[in-house]
Design a protein around this nucleic acid. Structure first.
Length: 459
DNA sequence: AAAAAAC
C-alpha cells in the first residue's frame, strides 16, 4: 500500500513524496479514501497515529477541486490548543506546497490584526481554537456559511476543556450540508451524542483501542518520597539514556520550580505551561525541537497531540489525576513505531490515581527501583570502558555529563554517517531535528532505540 | 486538588 493507491492527486503525491513518505499509516489508509468520497468520518485514533495527515491530505485535494480562490473559507479545522492548531497549520503548508490554497491560523494569545487581514484577503482554510474563532465571528470578521467541510480534532480533549458548547454553536453557523470529520482518542457518551447530532451516516474508523497505551512504550512506576522527587528525577535522568525527555507536572508552579531546579543542576531544560505567553511557548517548543534543550518540563498543555520527534522518555513528576491524561502524556514518546520509556513517580497520596490508570489501560504497571548510584550501569552494560567512573559516588562524573553541551550520543545512530558519530560525546551533533524524509507523515522517529535499563530496576 | 481556552 502506497499513497498513490489512495486516490490523491499528483501534486499532493509529489508533496508527500518530497516530504519523504511513501507508506500511509493505518488511519491514513482507512480514512483518506472515504474522506475523498465526501463521507463523514468518526476517527478513533490516538495522537501519534498519523491522524493529522489523514484529514489534511484529502482536504487539500477536495479544496483544490473547488474554486481556485475562495471568497469565504471553505473548510474549518478546530483544535483544542493553540500549539496543536499551529502544528496542523505547519502540516497544511508542507503538504499544500503545490496548491494555491490559503489558510488562516486563528488562535488566541496573539494579536488579532494579522488574522483579520488574512480573513479580509480571503482564505480557503481556517485552523482555529474555539475561543478565538468565536471572538472573530462575533466581531463579524468571519463568514462561515461557505464552510462545507469541518474537522473536529481531539474531541475528547475539547470535552475536557469545556469546549463542547462552543463546538455545538459553531456547528450551527456552518451549512447543514457539509462534510464533518470527528477525531477523538476515546469515545465517551457526550462525544458520541455530539457525533450523532452533527454527523450524518458517519463511517467509523478505529486504529488503536481507545485508552490503551502504545505497546512500544515501556512503562515504569517509581515509589518516591514526595520531598525527594527532584533528587529521584535527577538520578533517573542520569541513569537512563535520555535523548530528550518531557517531564510532566500537575501544577504550573511545580513546572516553574522544577525547571529552575534542573537548570541549577546543570541540565539543559525548558518549560511550557499556560502562564507562559504564547510567543515564548512557541519559542520554547522550538528550542526543544531543535535540541537546544533536551528536557522540557510541562503542564498538561503539552500532554496531547504534540508531535515532537525523538522524545525518548516521559517522566510523570506528578502522577496525573485523570487517567486519560496518563495515556496522553506518555504518548509523547514511543511515536510511530519508535521505542519509548515512561516513568511515573508514585507517592503515598497517589494510590487511587495509579489504580485508575491501571484500570484504564487494563494492565498493571511494574514498579522499578531508583538507580542505586546514578552512574555506571549503562556503561557497564554496553562495555564502553567507563569502569573508572563506576565506583565514584561523589557525583563528579554525573556533573560532567550534565554540563556537556548536548545530549549524549553514545550509540550509533542509523540516520547519521558514521564519521559524525565518532566524537559525538565531546561535541554532540544537533540531536533530534531530522529530515522529515525519514518519517512517516505527521509522525515518526526511526532513530536510536533507547536501551531499556534492566540493571537497577526490579520491575 | 489543575490546566486549558477570548479580550
Amino acid at each position: 500500500m502506497t499513497f498513490a493507491d489512495l486516490g490523491l492527486s499528483d501534486e499532493l503525491l509529489k508533496a508527500v513524496t518530497e516530504a519523504g513518505y511513501d507508506t500511509p499509516t493505518p488511519i491514513q489508509a482507512q480514512a483518506i479514501p472515504p474522506v475523498l468520497m465526501m463521507k463523514d468520518i468518526i476517527g478513533i485514533a490516538q495522537t501519534g497515529t498519523g491522524k493529522t495527515a489523514s484529514f489534511v491530505l484529502p482536504m487539500i485535494d477536495i479544496l483544490a477541486h473547488g474554486r481556485a480562490r475562495a471568497l469565504m473559507p471553505r473548510s474549518l479545522i478546530l483544535e483544542p490548543t493553540r500549539e496543536l492548531a499551529a502544528q496542523v497549520a505547519e502540516n497544511f503548508e508542507k503538504y499544500g506546497k503545490y496548491h494555491k490554497l490559503s489558510m488562516a491560523l486563528l488562535i488566541g494569545g496573539v494579536q488579532m490584526g494579522d488574522q483579520i487581514k488574512a480573513l479580509e484577503k480571503g482564505v480557503d482554510v481556517l485552523i482555529a481554537t474555539p475561543g478565538r474563532l468565536m471572538d472573530l465571528f462575533q466581531r463579524g470578521k468571519i463568514l462561515l456559511n461557505g464552510c462545507n467541510m469541518l474537522v473536529i480534532d481531539e474531541a475528547d480533549r475539547m470535552l475536557d476543556m469545556g469546549f463542547i458548547p462552543d463546538i455545538e454553536e459553531i456547528c450551527t453557523k456552518l451549512p447543514a450540508q457539509r462534510q464533518t470529520l470527528l477525531f477523538s482518542a476515546t469515545m465517551p457518551p457526550v462525544i458520541k451524542k455530539l457525533a450523532d447530532r452533527f454527523l450524518s451516516n458517519p463511517k467509523s474508523i478505529e486504529v488503536a483501542r481507545p485508552a490503551t497505551a502504545s505497546t512500544n512504550i515501556t512503562q515504569h512506576l517509581v515509589k518516591v518520597d514526595s520531598r525527594k522527587k527532584r533528587e529521584a528525577l535527577r538520578a533517573l535522568l542520569d541513569a537512563q539514556d535520555v535523548q530528550s525527555a518531557v517531564i510532566f507536572c500537575n501544577r504550573k508552579t511545580t513546572v516553574r520550580e522544577l525547571n529552575k531546579s534542573l537548570q541549577r543542576h546543570g541540565y539543559r531544560s525548558g518549560e511550557i505551561h499556560g502562564d507562559i505567553d504564547q510567543s515564548s511557548r512557541i519559542a520554547e517548543l522550538e528550542r526543544f525541537r531543535d535540541g537546544k534543550v533536551n528536557i522540557l518540563v510541562a503542564s498538561d498543555v503539552a500532554a496531547r497531540g504534540l508531535d515532537i520527534k525523538g522524545v525518548s522518555h516521559v517522566f510523570n513528576f506528578d502522577a496525573p489525576w485523570h487517567p486519560d491524561d496518563y495515556v496522553h502524556r506518555i504518548g509523547r514518546t514511543g511515536r510511530a513505531g519508535a521505542k519509548g520509556v515512561a516513568f511515573t513517580f508514585v507517592t503515598n497520596e497517589d494510590a487511587e490515581a495509579i489504580d485508575n490508570i491501571q484500570k484504564l489501560i487494563g494492565t498493571k504497571i511494574a514498579y522499578a527501583d531508583l538507580p542505586a548510584g546514578a552512574d555506571a550501569p549503562q556503561a557497564e552494560m554496553r562495555g564502553e570502558g567507563r569502569s573508572e567512573n563506576r565506583d565514584r559516588k561523589d557525583g563528579r562524573r554525573r556533573d560532567d555529563k550534565r554540563r556537556a553541551d548536548g545530549p549524549r550520543e553514545d550509540r550509533p545512530r542509523e540516520d547519521r554517517p558514521r564519521a559524525d558519530r565518532k566524537d559525538s560525546r565531546a561535541v554532540p551533533p544537533p540531536p533530534r531535528r531530522r529530515d522529515a524524509a525519514e518519517d512517516g507523515p505527521d509522525e515518526g522517529w526511526n532513530g536510536p532505540v533507547p536501551e531499556f535499563l534492566s540493571v537497577g530496576f526490579s520491575g
